[in-house]
Design a protein around this nucleic acid. Sequence first.
DNA 1: TAAAGATTGGA
DNA 2: CCAATCTTT
Length: 472
Amino acid sequence: MRSLVWFRRDLRIADNTALFEAARHADDGVVGVFLITPEQWQKHDDASCKVKFLIENVRTLSDRLAELNIPLLIRTCHDFQEAPACISKLASETGCDTVYINREYEVNESKRDDNVSLACEQAGVAMRRFHDRTIVPPKAISTKEGRFYSVFTPYRKVWDLTARETVETTPDPEQQPVIAIGRDPVPESITGFDFSNARSDLWPPGEDEAQRRLDRFSESISAYNVERDIPSVRGTSLLSPYLNVGVISARQCFFRADQILESSAGENEGAKTWISELTWRDFYNHVMVACPRVSMHHPFKPKTNQIPWRTDQSDFEAWKTGTTGYPIVDAGMRQLNQTGWMHNRLRMVTAMFLTKNLLVDWRWGEKYFMSRLIDGDLSANNGGWQWSASTGTDSVPYFRIFNPFSQSKRFDPDGLFIRKMCPELKRVPAKALHDPAKLSDAIASLGIDYPNFVVDYKAGRERALSAFKSLK
DNA sequence: TAAAGATTGGA
DNA sequence: CCAATCTTT
């Protein structure tokens, strides 16, 4: 019995359900495979920095698998259509009787896996799929009426019980016997993606690095509920890119935080808040599985399609490039453009500015984020955008529109973050960064080259309010 | 995971 | 006159 493990977004050894099961059932070795599908990644708007990070992690995974005598093979297909033939053929060639995978829940991905399963069956190869991506699997919990939870708070209550009672981590796989199959080199570049501008120094690859980050974050987790909102402070875990490619599992994160919570007799607000954020990740995945159309350019609330979403190229361009004239919005967008990552508070601020103050179609923003983020995840990104645009499940009420100046006053009071990302505002006093009139005065009197407001604040806000009010 | 406008209560 | 509080969106 020999097992083939097809790695996708689960690039780790520890707490990997499919890998553990594959190793447990094999007595003649385990083979790993990773499929490179550049055209599919382009269709999905994957960011270059994300693909680079993915490939770097495939490389470190290959090294660690080699220590377990598991050779990692690399195959390249154009897109998912070629996956069934590729995987079934590879299983046969390497003498594997079963393919092990951890499920991916997106529409294209699960359809691909169904097709791979069929192709394997025809080749006399079995396929076993496991739930591993989230803490509580999608569809595992539902309301008393048997429907899916579309509101977060009741979902979280059931999620909490389920996670604590039924979820456990997976043991490490054992070392395998040596087999006569050598591993493949991992390519240095991928056609269609430019690796030269990615800030790899900010995100070293590997399972060890992810664990170090979790360790470091654990030490200050009690401050998370306060500091997570302050972009100039390292108050968040900085684990999202690692979670996204599965270099660390959400379960590992959950158990660490839960341990800390228990050791403080439930008195750690930071740990509680972080677990809640992990729950949001599960929630949006669960929404996507229950209602796949949300991830296919449809709002969860159909009537919001009546909103005359604007398609103004020049407003959109100002937003993308961080030249809206609103300091906190520009700072956030420049952080995204320069580093491939944006602080979560700013993701909300910038998303709300685009969808409400500019009333630009939320799908434009969703796509742009995806094309830039190192941690871009379909369900979380979509959930976040539909939350901000008030089109989604349990999204923000349409009349709760962030005021960019109030937001920066609260979360960047000294303007530290704004001045870091927008150096031209270095000489503008903090008070003026949080006040439109004072900002205009300061820019004029100091002779600073900073754009005028792309939209009048009050006019933009009223335009969004009346668009939502007139929905039937 | 809000902000704006109105109202109140104290200087 | 200002800040705290309530109400509305």
